[in-house]
Amino acid sequence: MSLIAMAIVPFAVSLFVCGLMIRLGPKDAPDGGRKTQAAPVPSSGGVGVLAGMAAGLASLALMAPSVAETLVAAPIAGIAGFTVFAALLGWADDVFGLPALTKLVALLGGAAAAVVIGPQPGTLWVDGAAVTLPWALGAFIAVGFIFVMANAVNFMDGANGIAMGTSLIILAALGLMLVPSSVYSSADQSPGILMAMCFIAAASLAGFLVWNLPGKLFAGDAGSLSVGGLIGGASVMFAINGPALVPLTLCLPILIDVFLTLAWRARHGRPLMQAHRDHAYQLLLRAGWSHGKVAWLWWGMTAICAGAVIAGPFASAAGLYGARSWPLDVIVFAALLIAGCGLWVRQRVTLGRELLASGR
């Protein structure tokens, strides 16, 4: 029965509602520059993803009444509340076009409210050791990561399948690592419900991708902001009781491109608040790569990160290797960070210069 609630129901509802959004949703028109579609494409597919998540959680609550109690209590309520808030904010932007600064301020306020409700990290686990944080510092880190992930997924949502497919892999991996209770020090039901939320969100994204991969529907800000916020909130909650670098490692394919691109634009005096085509994935699209090929590349990199953390620091933290002698979470994170940054720089030096020289 749990398989129905966590996979079949959210997938089917998301698939159906996304199909409705193709007919009823706002249209994302081409702009002759950053947007690559030749004609207006229905957007706000994130509404379908959110509907799938709501249906999956409702089904789970009907099977186990305690689920509903956990959903409306801290810390899950903070994560769920921000996901809904970000979806509504994104939908408003999809329909009415909100100023960028207004959207950023609203997201920051929403992230702060989510952390006030919960989760509130007082401890982070690095290399098996607990690092105690003052409440203010822990809250600052939590708000910052939720805010950053909401925007980062939004920045990466410029090619069919790349942002939402990558998010699906991240959420599925987080859900998988939330299964063994030995990773957690708490005895409440929150990790179990968070696990269900991750799997339900992944199934909902799969329903959306059926329409998105052929280019029939975009997620819009309603999808990218809410899914990114969910990843951020789930990562913070995971880090409170599990290896803190694990969710950060999972998000590296997104975060490396976003932060290095912003740094590159700042170094060249280009406005950071302006839409552009300078991300690594956008360079590949400009060079003639198909959306599918670019998406598969990012999915592959994310799958490598997921495999590395599951086989390395997570397995070690779960006690599968017995006594540890190496800081696997630090080693895996550092190795993948260095490799990812190296690939980004190499592409910028080679393909970036080639595109600049040819005027593409």
Rank of each mutant, 00 (worst) to 15 (best):
G233D: 09
P243E: 12
N160S: 14
P243S: 11
R346Y: 13
A187W: 13
D127K: 04
G292K: 07
G242Q: 03
S235L: 01
A86S: 04
P119M: 13
I169W: 05
L355V: 06
W264F: 13
G45F: 06
A315F: 03
V126H: 02
V332Y: 03
L124R: 00
H279Y: 01
V95R: 14
A266D: 04
V49F: 04
W125Y: 14
G97D: 12
S235T: 11
A29Q: 13
I256R: 03
Q120V: 14
A12C: 07
S190P: 08
I4C: 11
L178V: 00
I200G: 03
L284E: 04
N160Q: 11
L107A: 06
T249I: 10
L62H: 08
G118M: 11
A202K: 00
F238D: 02
D94A: 13
L284F: 07
I310N: 08
V153E: 02
V309S: 03
G109L: 06
L88G: 01
P42L: 11
L176Q: 05
F82I: 09
Q282I: 03
G78P: 00
A39P: 12
W211F: 12
A130K: 08
M164H: 05
V115G: 06
L71A: 07
A74H: 11
A100S: 08
F11G: 03
A306D: 02
G46M: 04
D257Y: 02
H268G: 01
I200V: 10
A142D: 01
P247N: 11
L3V: 15
L57P: 14
D28R: 04
V126C: 00
G288C: 09
V183T: 15
S185E: 14
A29M: 10
W344G: 01
P121T: 12
A114N: 10
R346P: 03
V67Y: 01
A280R: 01
A308D: 09
P30C: 05
Y184D: 05
G90D: 00
V41D: 03
A7Q: 05
V67K: 06
S66I: 13
S181Y: 11
G359K: 08
S66K: 14
T350L: 08
P65G: 05
L213T: 02
T302P: 07
G165N: 01
N154Q: 03
G175V: 05
C305G: 01
L320I: 09
G223P: 04
N212R: 04
V17N: 09
F238M: 06
R23I: 05
T102I: 01
I254Q: 01
A61Q: 07
L133Q: 03
I231V: 15
G46T: 02
L297Q: 11
A139H: 15
L107G: 02
P99H: 04
G232Q: 07
P42Y: 10
D257T: 05
S59E: 05
K216I: 04
A159S: 15
K35P: 11
Q282H: 07
F333V: 01
V349T: 13
K293L: 15
A38E: 13
P30S: 03
L351Y: 12
L205N: 02
P247W: 10
G300D: 03
A73Y: 10
F218W: 07
W296I: 14
V17S: 11
A61S: 15
A318Y: 00
S185C: 11
L137A: 14
M21S: 07
